[in-house]
Structure formats: structure tokens, C-alpha cells
Write a protein that binds this DNA or RNA. Sequence first.
DNA 1: TAGTGGTCTAGACCACATC
DNA 2: ATGTGGTCTAGACCACTAT
Lengths: 240, 240
Amino acid sequence: MKKAKYLEVAEVIRKRIKDGTYQVKKPLPDQQTLAKELGVSRLTVKKALDGLERQGEVYKQSGLGTFVSEEIPIKSSIDSPANEFTGLRKEMGKNRVTSKVLHFSVEFPDEKLQKYLDLHKTEPVYHIVRFRLLENKPYVIEHTFMPVKLVPDLTDEILHKSVYDYIHHVLHLKFGHAYRRIRATRADDKYDHYLNAGENDPIIELQQIIWLMNGQPIEYSFNRSRFDQRVYTVFENNRF
Amino acid sequence: MKKAKYLEVAEVIRKRIKDGTYQVKKPLPDQQTLAKELGVSRLTVKKALDGLERQGEVYKQSGLGTFVSEEIPIKSSIDSPANEFTGLRKEMGKNRVTSKVLHFSVEFPDEKLQKYLDLHKTEPVYHIVRFRLLENKPYVIEHTFMPVKLVPDLTDEILHKSVYDYIHHVLHLKFGHAYRRIRATRADDKYDHYLNAGENDPIIELQQIIWLMNGQPIEYSFNRSRFDQRVYTVFENNRF
DNA sequence: TAGTGGTCTAGACCACATC
DNA sequence: ATGTGGTCTAGACCACTAT
């Protein structure tokens, strides 16, 4: 299966931004010119630029042109994007993350989970608690619930590596959308002591449901970190 | 200036979802049928559906159809969307929000602010601290910095109502994109006592830079709430 | 095989900003 | 007047899913 042309075009443009061919705050060549150069229609170029704009790489001004976005001055390398679908190992780098499985069981879902994961009470879920360290420093406690029917044959070994890899590359499932809630709370969960959090230390918690492309919910989870260990970020674009 | 057709089409479909014409988890009419019915081309329908999909109203499956999304079970009415551009008064309802101006001055920007707002050190900024209550209950302390050159003639009266309204409807400026960082912290700011936060109460803080459509940064701010008063949410769609 | 959404094209016209 | 991006069309072909 071949990649769509507009994705190829977006990659070319992204590279040119990265290597300085197109400079920050300067206009890119106009859409017609890019279309001719790359041998595609103008609409295909526009579609590529629309995507890059949604991701914050460029911004367009009708009547003026398309410009390379500036660096974001408050962006930090420790930020965790709250609007991406990469797993922790991929996000942070494979070898920087280690995982300890604190709990792994199969259960029937309670009423809350039945609602969250759109399950009948007879359809079992995995219940997983993982303690994850970033460069050997306590980083996050992840409480995860997934329907067994959607993720068959989950093993302890997979839990130590990447569940995301298993879901995507072995089961060939694709995440579609997610709803996430971020809040501050106290260290009051039974596993929080793993985070080296004192009794009065704030905790930052991200709770989420993830759905597949076909609309089925595949994961309910909440992830807790000590307040000074994690910052969630959102990039937002004011377009339809 | 007339509204684009694809926006009109999206509104029609959104209404039909809301009033039950199209039912949850059931397929909408196919794109060709909708196009004919509404007297537009198929691409225009697709563009409308793409937007609704990004906003989570529907999801599409190639080869199958377009389906109405389910209700999100963890969504709560107290959630604050972290990926919207509406001001607090509009988000929560005009009459539920009251504002007290704790500080209002004009200053030359320090180095940090010069970087955040892309300013020369001779270009002054407003420095505003507002205490905002939701139905007379302490809700958030907002620390806001804006370049004077972009927001001329800001008055105390505007601060008591909606700065967003002034920027959009009087100055006719449009927000383009924003980068937001959400973290948990302690009640250690000099204004935090307004939140009725005890010394050990966690605080949830949202820090952000907002840019206009033309790429100019117009606001740097950080907003602090007591941990149990605010939850930030993100909806994310795994598409280009 | 039939029906769905996804992509792509060429061409046209419009809205907007600048000169 | 010119050049930019935004919208819209009709038509074509492809990829995917179900039967």
C-alpha cells in the first residue's frame, strides 16, 4: 500500500524546514510553485500545508503566504505531549524507560468499567499496574484496563516492553481518538509511594479513554506522577 | 462576507446529530447522497465531515461509512477544555463568572517576557492579575502579560468583563494557535490565598502562549486553581 | 460484486493584502 | 493590478469492507 502524495509532500516540506531551506518567519514558495516543482496539483500541496499547520510547523495568511512557525519559547524537552498517541518508550527513547509490573490480572469489569469500555459484565478486562522509571528515576504509575477480547494473548513479557508496539505492530490495530483529563491531586493511592512522593506532595494525574479507528474503546487508564516530574502540554490550532 | 459551504454543511450535520436524526453508532448517509441532498459537491461534504471528525462528533471507516460518535463516559460538565480559545466567561456562561482585578500595570518586559512575546525591551507590556470566581466560589487566579502595541487602550472596565471580547470584537484580532503546559504545584504564589488553598493543597497551573493568525504572540499567561476546582481536558484525533 | 470513504486532478472563481 | 491562499466543482480512480 502506497503512501498518499500529500503525506510525501508534507515530509519534503518538513525536512526543508528542519534543514533551514525554509527559514523561520519567512514565507515558503507559493502553493502553485510548490505544486509545479513537486509534480502534484495545487490542492495536494494545500492538503500537506493544512496538516503541517495543524501540527504547528507553519501558519498561513490568506493573501500573504505560508510562513515557517517560530520556536516555542516555553517548550521544554521534559514536556509530555498530551495530544499524541506514542507510547512512553517511543516518546522518551527506548532505553531510557524501564518498567516494573506491580499488578497483572484478568477481571470482570465493574459498572464503571463497563461504561468506560462499552463492555458487558461477562467480558473480562486486563487490570495492569506498571511502575515506570525514566533513567532509573521514578516517573509514573500507570493503571491500565483493556478488554481481553481486543488484546488477546497479552503476556508479562509484553508488559515489560511496550504494549503499544504489541497493539500496533502485532495486532495491527490503530488508535483513532482519545479523551484525556488532567488534574492535580494528593499522594493518596496505594501505589504512590513508588513515586517517592511525600504525604503532602502534589500528584499530577492523566486519566484517559482511547478508542480504535472503528470506534471501539480499547483502553481506560490513569497515570500518576509526582508534581515536579511531569508537565503535560497541548498544542492547539484555531481552525476547523 | 459569506460563510463557506462546508461550514454550513457541517452545521446541518451537527444539528441532525444533536436532534437524533442521525443516531449514535449508526452510519450517516453516504457522502454522495449527502452531497446531492444538500446541493454541493462530494468533496465539500467530505471537508465538513473531516472537521466534525477532528472535533470528535463522528468517525469514518474507509469502506464502511461515517458513524456518529458515542458519548464520552468520563466527560464531566466541570471539565475545562485545554484545546479551545473561548474566554472563561463564554466557556462557563457570562453570568456565572465574576472578576476582581488584583493588579494592573504597564511594565517593560524582562528578558523572559521579551522571549515569550517576541518583544524588544523598549516595548511595554500589560501586567494583569485577576481573581475570578465561578458562582461566587474562588476559581482561578490569572496572571496575564500582553504587548501594549497589540492591545491598545485596555481599561479597567474591560478587565472586569472579557478581554477576549475586546480583542475579538473591538480590535478584530483572531487567535491562531497556542501552546499550553499543565502542571501540578504547591500553593506558593503570593496570590494563592485567594483560592482558599491551604499551605499543603496542590495547585493545578496552566501556562500558555497564544499567537494571532499572523504569527505574533499576543499573550503569555499562567492560571492557577486549587486542585479540586479544575480539570483540564484534551480531545485528540489520530489523523494528519 | 457492490458500496463505502480516500485521493488526486485541472480549472475556475473568490477574498484578502500589498503596491 | 498583481499575487497570495481559500473554496468549490465534476469526474476519475483507488483501497477497503462486506456479501
